[in-house]
Nucleic acid binder design. Sequence first.
DNA 1: GTAGGACCTGGAGTGTGCTCCAGGTCAATT
DNA 2: AATTGACCTGGAGCACACTCCAGGTCCTAC
Lengths: 134, 134
Amino acid sequence: MANGNAVHQQEPALTIAQVAERTGLSHDTLRYYERAGLIERVGRTTGNQRRYAAADLAWLEFLLRLRETGMSISDMRRYARLRAAGGATLTDRLAMLRAHRDELARRIHVLQGNAGVLDSKIKHYETLIDQQPR
Amino acid sequence: MANGNAVHQQEPALTIAQVAERTGLSHDTLRYYERAGLIERVGRTTGNQRRYAAADLAWLEFLLRLRETGMSISDMRRYARLRAAGGATLTDRLAMLRAHRDELARRIHVLQGNAGVLDSKIKHYETLIDQQPR
DNA sequence: GTAGGACCTGGAGTGTGCTCCAGGTCAATT
DNA sequence: AATTGACCTGGAGCACACTCCAGGTCCTAC
């Protein structure tokens, strides 16, 4: 009946290795994110080893979306602190997300333009190679 | 009739400041790109100051597309060296561009997925804020 | 109860892509 | 010819986001 953890919860409680595998982040990066304030101090066993709850994993996965879309560590930290501060910061968080979303839309647009330039260059090269088939 | 330049060409021959302004790159970055082998040694005046030809500017602008789409300096250098090596490298360059184009398509796709996640989160926050309007 | 792998901390080190600096030369203006 | 701002070189420094390390503790299996 006892589960041997100081963290008394019925949730999965993953080890850092399991979280690393699920998120694709390294052990070091996970610890770095905690030090950097991107995730709140994660639960520990009596022996001081991390045990991640399902909610920690979900938050990490959202952080990964932010990171993949180019948000800096310091902006993610700002967001994380607002989140930790509770419901009163909802509008601030919403503003951050909207700004990030807009910036992302802009960047996708630029990338699509550049993809077009690449396509033309590729077509040009294909023509050159066809014309000089040796 | 003489133009005062060692580089005897009828082309514009821009100074580094003019190229910086047109490309948005800093003077230092332009010199760095030359040292890094992204651009071939640019023409100089008798006094050893850079004068960029129109072709240099066009190449820089293409490099900027590569950079904006996330190509690393070392890959850009590889590409630049192939280009400098002449027509026999056309197929190699084409292969590089195709690979980069494919990777770019993949990344745009991921970004669009993440944009969707952000949109849901934003909608969720909007609902929360509406429900608790004080 | 012991071996060996997983995990801990604080701090140093790394790769990338610039950016800045010192100590000079060059060029346009007066 | 003197001033002043633009430009030169080689090399050091920087911000970012990790990544690695030393020296230790913990935990699972036997």
